[in-house]
Design a protein around this nucleic acid. Structure first.
Lengths: 260, 260
DNA sequence: CGGCGGCTTGACTGGTATCAAGTACCGTGG
DNA sequence: CCACGGTACTTGATACCAGTCAAGCCGCCG
């Protein structure tokens, strides 16, 4: 593991390194910059308003629940999680975010962020002041569309998540989770069948509404069944079709249409 | 209270009847028309693009999952639910919507609606073609803000829902649900402590990830404990503070700040 | 090398689903 | 108007999945 791999997860494709000097021109954050719709000059404009390549170490916060909302964040490399806390101190991870994904949206036009966002590893992001984004969107309609697209996806993602939490058993939840990660990695040019989990078993359990022990048990079971190969945080999907079946999820096929 | 606002909110106040001839001028769908920010002429403009007072009977669909996305809907009276369906036919209700609330947003800039929306009783809505909304938003910045606010609320709502489904037991879920309804009714000028459920026990269970029988049992238990009074679909909250405690939810207090 | 946190595995428990039966309610048709 | 049938709801008995508790292992870092 020359482990640069996980630099991988970052924008290998975007640039070989994590140089903070990258311009948006060379960045493929798909949520902001659909290749098909964005003109070169758009990117130049973006370059002027973004704080590019802001770096967070593992455990550092992009923002805390309750802080005033002022910006959304596009992940360039690394990964982060968002979570809500209840009055009695319970935490619920609401999502994980990887390179090219955007977070902070649920603060939209609310005075505060309703969640906290924290880096799960060394992570670089573009901080996008919302006011600026609004300004820019007036000049660049594609930017607006792109934002709406991101919002739509996020809303739908949450809806699917409700289904997972409400209706699926432990096996199905884990299968859904793995297939979801697989899709997201594939989309950004990494292997769909072999990747490294950036989150702990504890975090997976928290996210999926399961105890750590259950996550561990299901991983072991899937391995015994030869559906996956687990080595610590390294995961290989040996029978993605089988997992997809188990997940009972149409949505993991949304982009890929493996079956039917 | 003489201000348009509150009477506003419920559409009861908007007009005594459900006349389809109501103009937006007289409607204060708070998601579209924040009293503070919307100018009279805004409403006149809105009047021109909306299909006002479209009527659906119980069981009729506003849109089906998979249909092309073209509009969002603001509820004027009645109520509806949205739900997703999995490949294996399981359904998950993702939300209920009442007067003044907006639905259809998760189709935003996706080619299709990822959910279905169906009326739970006789319901009237304003259909707002999304393209028109975009056009208008260019002229009326407050309209845009209003939409963003609605989106932010919806995202946050889903995040809270994930917490509920993932971390709370049956009692806590039902308490959360009741307090949530209470808040929403109160906000639009109805009693916070006495209301009529427009959905069946089955739908409540589906939404909360519980079996019908469990919903029924918890209602009975709460009644025995004198927290609520249940008579079919009529609900009275006898000890809302107690329910709020049980719900363990800070968010139900977001707007109200009962405690602390 | 030692300690600590993350992970795994086993035994037991408990909350909720499931199955089953009975009751209340509502719309329909006679 | 009432009889009827079906659906929604309630309540009880039982089963099972996943949580909890407990112990041990692994791997990492100082």
């Amino acid at each position: 593991m020359t482990d640069q791999k996980n630099q991988s997860i970052g924008l290998t494709a975007v640039s070989s390194a994590e140089s903070d000097a990258i311009l948006c021109k060379s960045c493929t954050l798909d949520s902001l910059c659909h290749p098909k719709s964005v003109q070169p000059h758009t990117l130049e404009i973006l370059d002027k308003v973004l704080s590019r390549g802001v770096r967070y170490s593992k455990g550092e916060y992009l923002f805390h629940q309750g802080e005033p909302f002022d910006a959304v964040y596009a992940v360039r490399s690394g990964s982060l999680k968002t979570y809500v806390v209840t009055s009695n101190g319970q935490e619920q991870i609401t999502n994980f975010y990887f390179a090219t994904e955007m977070t902070g949206l649920s603060g939209l036009n609310m005075s505060i962020y309703p969640v906290s966002a924290v880096a799960m590893e060394t992570t670089t992001v573009c901080k996008i002041p919302f006011a600026k984004l609004e300004e820019l969107s007036l000049q660049i309609p594609e930017l607006r569309e792109s934002i709406y697209g991101t919002i739509g996806k996020e809303l739908h993602n949450f809806e699917e998540m409700m289904l997972t939490l409400s209706k699926k058993n432990a096996d199905e939840r884990l299968a859904t989770f793995l297939m979801n990660l697989s899709c997201r990695y594939k989309k950004r040019g990494y292997s769909a069948s072999s990747f490294r989990l950036t989150m702990s078993r504890n975090e997976i359990g928290n996210f999926l509404g399961l105890a750590v022990e259950t996550v561990s048990r299901v991983f072991s079971k899937f391995q015994k069944q030869q559906f996956i190969k687990v080595e610590g945080k390294e995961i290989q999907l040996l029978k993605p079709d089988r997992l997809s079946e188990i997940s009972g999820n149409a949505s993991s096929l949304d982009d890929i249409k493996i079956t039917q």
